[in-house]
């Protein structure tokens, strides 16, 4: 009972990166506990996925040929049956939108504890999981004194596993009770909002909660214009309807890698950071010197954006609208 079972994630024909990060985290954990790492892939072109997933560190890959896309009712049943077969101590799943759509149900069905959004896992008994609280202001250690548990891992916290693997690939016949499948995925839809693609921009002027009011958006619009840059934003701005969805940077928006990313009044929540940390140069304008965005920034101004942005607009020959 020292083995680790991870279940890969795929969508619309492609494995998601977190699948390979699960291998890295799972291998670490299996080594610490002296067990094997089993990886399963459920649905889609499982044979092609298995070939791709056969990277260094995986001991066994189970291919489960059930459906095309993720369906939580199927995944919960398959996970339960895989666990009966493999008897792992830890079920490792992605802390993704789909991971959180079935991991808690699996834990509840098995009657085992779940710890989500892990950023570190130490293999000693009892298992210690590191996770954040209070909007990334603090980290906590969560100890789980149980023989079996479910852990979901935050994406990009572990490097993706690479290298040629030598896993034993097996087909696993799951017995899915269709009467327990009470949801149907009917399609996918891309977020709309016009034809601006923020992922194409060299310079992004990105605005967050610190802008306070809708009528202040004009200030960053003016800055973007003065710099000949493109305007983007963090999630709350889009949630409020102040900018369209296609301007949103982050996990549920776009991933951007501009030459310069100017974060204005953005604290740097983890979901936002996931979408912009690959930028070449990051500039943060924020009154709070402890805001998480400063951990990523190459340059920072710890001052009121309502003072700095007008001055910056004037630097480039513009006139502040406020």
């Amino acid at each position: 009972m020292t083995d680790v079972l991870a279940i890969a994630e795929h969508r619309r024909g492609s494995l998601r990166d977190v699948s390979f990060e699960l291998v890295t985290a799972g291998r670490e954990l299996a080594d610490a506990r002296g067990g094997d790492l089993h990886l399963a892939v459920v649905g889609g072109d499982v044979d092609a996925f298995a070939e791709e997933l056969n990277v260094e560190g995986v001991d066994t890959i189970y291919t489960v040929d059930e459906g095309e896309e993720f369906n939580h009712d199927v995944y919960v049943q398959v996970a339960q049956q895989l666990i009966e077969e493999v008897e792992p101590s830890t079920l490792l799943l992605p802390n993704s939108v789909n991971g959180l759509d079935y991991a808690p149900a699996v834990a509840e069905r098995l009657g085992v504890p779940i710890v989500t959004d892990a950023i570190g896992v130490a293999g000693d008994d009892p298992l210690e999981v590191t996770r954040e609280m209070y909007g990334s202001k603090v980290e906590t250690t969560i100890e789980v004194d149980a023989p079996e548990l479910v852990v979901t891992i935050r994406s990009t916290e572990w490097d993706g596993a690479e290298g040629e693997g030598s896993a034993d690939v097996q087909s696993f016949e799951a017995d899915v009770d269709e009467s327990q499948v009470r949801s149907t995925v009917t399609g996918f839809e891309e977020a709309g909002g016009g034809d601006v693609d923020i992922a194409d921009a060299d310079v992004l002027v990105s605005v967050g909660r610190g802008i306070d009011e809708e009528e202040n958006i004009v200030l960053v619009e003016k800055l973007a214009e003065a710099l000949d840059a493109t305007l983007s934003s963090s999630r709350p701005i889009v949630d409020n309807g102040w900018l369209p969805k296609n301007r949103q940077v982050g996990q549920s928006g776009k991933v951007v890698t501009p030459k310069v990313y100017i974060a204005i009044g953005i604290s740097g929540a983890v979901q936002h950071v996931a979408g912009m940390k690959g930028s070449e140069t990051i500039v943060a304008i924020n009154t709070d010197p402890n805001a998480p965005i400063n951990d990523l920034a190459d340059y920072a101004i710890h001052d009121d954006l309502f003072d700095v942005v007008p001055a910056l607009i004037e630097e480039f020959g513009g006139e502040s609208p406020l």
């Binding site: 202001k137 980290e139 906590t140 004194d145 943060a284 400063n294 009121d304 001055a311 910056l312 004037e314």
Partner: peptide
């Protein structure tokens, strides 16, 4: 079986160059 055993402020990873001065200076 789940318990919180520690809470701490993570070590800052910031190596940002901080622009100092008033708004005109930092904007400059």
């Amino acid at each position: 079986p789940v318990s919180r055993t520690a809470m701490y402020v993570p070590e800052t990873e910031s190596d940002a160059t901080v622009f100092e001065g008033d708004a005109e200076e930092t904007a400059g």
